[in-house]
Design a protein around this nucleic acid. Structure first.
Lengths: 340, 340
DNA sequence: CTGAAAGCGCTTACAG
DNA sequence: CTGAAAGCGCTTACAG
């Protein structure tokens, strides 16, 4: 079923059908009714590829996530789809799987699909190829909005969080408990969140004159397995830390897995604060203190930024928003007096 | 940049460029090289909307999930995107949010986008409007693959699991522990998984002559909050059950939340087996016994079914696969002798 | 092996 | 208010 078939059945031209469909131009009420009726009767749905080709746009937006299984991303996607839907956009989902080749190939695909804009959590902030492609997209009028992660050297819109401040507060909370042996399971240095969370952590320790031996810094790579290994290495140190700061949800999981294996209880045997709350565990009595922010909200804001940029492509000002973080003290920052 | 611009720069016709791009028809090696070079130099990416319109197809497939935040779906989507990518398909994600109006509107959208096929976990199996639309899609040559949930009255391809058997084994495991007071937090009756898990549960109790008082049957609606309420109602009964069977991951969470609040420990104070394992908790020492199946695998299989149907549209035989379930006994099926 | 031309299903100036 | 016609950027018989 095409517009011209509908036109024939309604006894009008396809231009008129198009006008009815788009509520554009002038159409007399009577022919409008007639056309609508025929459309209804035939359950006609216009071909978006043809429309897109003709109008040189589409209602698709591309969303790039590193790992849809990670609740950070699945919740952000939830926020994105909600807002996208309210604006009539469809979401094409790309799971880059922390793989830069996929990321770059998918970027190509998104261009081919004539996506109206993209929301991306880039794998690394310094990958030259990704930088080049994103820059080109932006220059060709395809808005790009960064989600949580950043890209060096380009001024792109983005939604981030107060990572330095959040990490700073987390470290301070541990220090306030009397800890002097505080370790960090850090994230990748080539990501803004990785660096900034480290920065906030270091600042707090520095301000209190607390030494940070190199063996107290482990790279969890934002991954569960690497963080598990890091935690293990930390806990098996001759002089293990009494408190640990984990920089994302997967690091917290990895660390807690190791603690569980060693029968160490957070808030008693060892203190732990994570960046990003594990709310799903809170209900079950695993009360992890954390630097919290709303993932869904970040997704929503990302889509709002994108929509605004699509609507005002010429707006020069780059919009880089930071959602606040909130320190949730649920008990895991504590430690038994004799364990300190 | 369009095909004809490339053609001009390469001194050939656009037909030739198209042939190079699609590796179809004959192109001499020398002109092929030349064209490829120009494409490369200009970083040309063909317009998929034009290609789609011309070829009357697209590389998009539509994926309908009820809730992307639910790990069942996020993992299934992971499996789908992995396989889709390997076949060159792009995934347009629709989050129906357990809302039939959204489901139906999105179905319309998917048709407009000329999606090559759809994978859907329909909200209800008996919604007349959804049935009608899916039937129409199938008849118009758009393959439909069901994921986990079913649709009544249509013979559509699908990937399901051995729900009756799984639930039966779970109930038997509880019975084997000596339980006689076993409750179920059930799912919606208008979903196949909801009904079949109930059926397996009932069969096991029946075979052992174990009575099931009506107050031991609570509807958790596959939702955390309703399951929490159900658990609470069960535990506050004058004669509470000594064992509970929860029919999906969210019911297990809801139930465990209630248990945690009441300081009841699974495997000691009360027995619990869930349908769908909460593996993310296992590492943390929360050892929930469960009927397990691989969500990612179900997603992969769904996409494989879809791809096969796209490739062989005329194949009459409907393919309805069931992935097996595996009973994981991790200790929560047990109970202290004096609690029985 | 290559090109001219028609066509995919829409939209949109343009003319009336 | 309405229609004829050109055009969006591809693909693909058809002819050579």
């Amino acid at each position: 079923m095409t517009i011209s078939e509908i036109a024939r059945k309604a006894g009008v031209s396809s231009a008129t059908v198009s006008r009815v469909l788009n509520e554009s131009g002038y159409v007399s009420e009577s022919t409008r009714k007639k056309v609508l009726e025929v459309i209804e009767d035939n359950e006609f749905v216009p071909n978006e590829m043809a429309r897109g080709l003709s109008k040189k746009d589409s209602n698709n937006i591309a969303v790039f996530v590193a790992d849809i299984e990670n609740t950070f991303f699945s919740r952000a996607v939830r926020g994105i789809t909600d807002v996208a839907d309210s604006y009539g956009y469809n979401v094409v989902l790309f799971n880059t799987d922390e793989n830069v080749e996929k990321e770059q190939r998918y970027l190509q695909t998104a261009i081919g699909l004539q996506c109206r804009g993209i929301i991306i959590a880039p794998i690394a902030e310094d990958n030259a190829e990704t930088q080049k492609r994103l820059d080109r997209m932006k220059n060709q009028g395809v808005p790009v909005v960064l989600l949580d992660r950043d890209i060096r050297g380009l001024s792109l819109d983005g939604i981030f969080s107060e990572d330095v401040q959040g990490a700073y507060e987390a470290a301070n909370a541990l220090i306030a408990q009397g800890h002097r042996r505080i370790a960090i399971i850090k994230g990748p240095d080539n990501t803004r969140p990785g660096r900034e969370r480290m920065e906030g952590f270091l600042r707090a320790l520095d301000e209190h004159g607390i030494p940070l031996p190199p063996e107290y810094i482990r790279d969890g790579k934002f991954r569960l397995d690497a963080s598990y290994d890091s935690a293990r290495a930390l806990l098996e140190l001759p002089q293990p830390p009494t408190a640990i700061f984990t920089v994302n949800n997967l690091s917290s999981y990895g660390c807690m897995k190791c603690l569980a294996e060693k029968d160490l209880v957070i808030g008693r045997d060892v203190s732990l604060i994570g960046f990003d709350a594990l709310d799903e565990l809170d209900d079950l009595g695993i009360r992890l203190s954390a630097v919290s922010r709303s993932f869904t909200e970040m997704g929503r804001r990302a889509m709002q930024l994108l929509e605004q940029r699509i609507r005002h492509p010429s707006l020069a000002r780059v919009r880089r928003l930071r959602v606040p973080t909130r320190l949730l003290l649920r008990g895991s920052e504590k430690i038994a007096a004799d364990a300190l």
